[in-house]
Design a protein around this nucleic acid. Structure first.
Lengths: 185, 185
DNA sequence: GGAGAAAACGGACTATAGTCCGGGTATGGC
DNA sequence: GCCATACCCGGACTATAGTCCGTTTTCTCC
């Protein structure tokens, strides 16, 4: 890990102000209904500050999700089975699909924003690479675990689940994903 | 089918001019590298005309793909087996996956544009609904053909295939999709 | 072939994402 | 406490998508 030399007091203050403002505005008007200008104004910072720190709207979404995402990753790496180590791969895969869907459905709009700024942005996220490696390892033994892992994650993409939700409902999506996880082994 | 009353001569002339200009500019500078202003200028029409006719850049992409897409749909509905009617569902599904990948890889950038203007745009395309119904029918008998069809199509989305192509290559993607099609039955 | 209606045209206009850089401020060394 | 400087700030600026509406063209019917 590279350790940044330090964070200046004004920078840290502004980062917190931006994240607070963004969380509040997103909750109030929806992710799509808030412009970067509005967030900057609400946080009391300039536009330049906002973009320099977070890159773009997707980067802001990633920062907002950071804590929740780390919790899930922690549960996978060091938590109790079946999500954490110790259970059979098949069980761990089912537990992952379930836990990931919990996370996804809880933050659907923000995750969608984090994944779809530019086309293909999702696949470049550190988090995506984490989920992909985890799933590929659990699929070890199948003909092409890497492709199969991408397939499972495609069925768990925010855009995909958002589109299917009104048509199929949460229950059928959960069952479908679990069946898929089994079928891929 | 609803029959539009007629198309005025100026409208038809401009439509052709826009499609020509777009095809040429896309081929020359890539889909991402061309702005709607440039297309309008190259076609010798105003911006308003462009947007009124095609809605947005994705609509323009859809119009460009129209002919090729109809060919594939025709092959499915009335062509010879195994793509067309007459073969076993499993064979037809494999043939569809293969033919769709041919189509997708041939026009990857334009299809990506047609699918990803706004988030979820893909699922509202008439073409998507066609592919989905076809696949769901071929998966009849499995626990949830509709969800399974969405899964197969997710593995065939332009963004997904674009992201996987440099990492896995065409061969592994084709094999992976075929395995998925088998596993979903 | 001319008048009137309907449809299409086109460019000025708005909104938003994202960039750039001159000016300011915290920090660490003295 | 003071200075040098590296880092950060913020708003003016650019580029692009998409809208709006007064004007022009086409079509139809007489």
């Amino acid at each position: 890990m590279t350790r940044p030399p330090k964070e200046r007091a004004d920078a840290s203050r502004n980062r917190a102000a931006v994240l607070d403002a963004a969380a509040r505005l997103f909750a109030e008007h929806g992710v799509e209904g808030v412009s970067m200008d509005q967030i900057a104004a609400a946080a009391g910072v300039g536009k330049g500050t906002l973009f320099r720190r977070f890159g773009d709207k997707a980067g802001l979404a990633v920062a907002l999700l950071d804590a929740r995402e780390r919790t899930l990753q922690e549960g996978i790496l060091h938590g109790p089975p079946p999500l954490g180590p110790g259970a059979e791969p098949a069980e761990r895969l089912a537990a992952f699909a379930d836990a990931y869907l919990d996370y996804l459905l809880e933050h659907l709009a923000v995750i969608r924003m984090s994944e779809s700024s530019s086309p293909g942005a999702r696949y470049r996220l550190g988090a995506y690479r984490f989920w992909h490696r985890h799933v590929a390892i659990l699929l070890d033994g199948s003909p092409d675990p890497e492709h199969a892992a991408h397939v499972l994650l495609a069925a768990l993409s925010a855009v995909h689940v958002t589109a299917l939700l009104p048509e199929l409902g949460e229950r059928r999506i959960r069952e479908g994903v679990l069946r898929l996880a089994k079928a891929l082994r």
